[in-house]
Amino acid sequence: MNKSYIFIGISFVLLAIVQFLVVPFIQIYSVYPKIILLPVVYFSLSQGQFRGTIAGFIFGLIYDLLSGDIWGINAVSLTVAGFFAGYFFDESVTDPFYYFRKFLIILFFTTLIETLINSLSSFEGLDLSFIAFLLIQSILPALYTSFIAVPLAFFRKEMKIS
């Protein structure tokens, strides 16, 4: 099996545990980062849209099992996240962290879409306007996730021409 698959898989399980056990305690006014999106976005950017979509589904399903959340809810949102991030796949870029600002922007918009889809099922019955819902549930977590991802810039590798 490709080593990078194993690496991404292990990273996901570790980050899922951190998301599940640690992240709830670093939330700021109920806004928390969605760090499980990091391996999904990384995988999609390094392996392409097709594989990224499949990885999103598998990772989402694993996270549903881990977290006790409704089965399928994270599977759907992470599938869409993998698909979206895969749009920006560039075969000539061997390390998605190389253009780090681009990575952060893709991560921000992927988180925005993922968190929105993830929480849409709860929107019914709320008295919130859609703008307020978008801000609270998507924009702020997306900003927080991008902020948390900044230290990953130190893991940039030298670019290989492929």
């Binding site: 979509t53 589904f57 549903d64 599977a75």
Partner: peptide, 18 residues
């Protein structure tokens, strides 16, 4: 269109699970 078909299939599967 394989990416789109895959997306539709997996999203449907996820919704079915829900």
């Amino acid at each position: 269109y394989k990416e789109y078909l895959l997306l539709i299939f997996l999203v449907t599967l996820g919704l079915f699970l829900q």
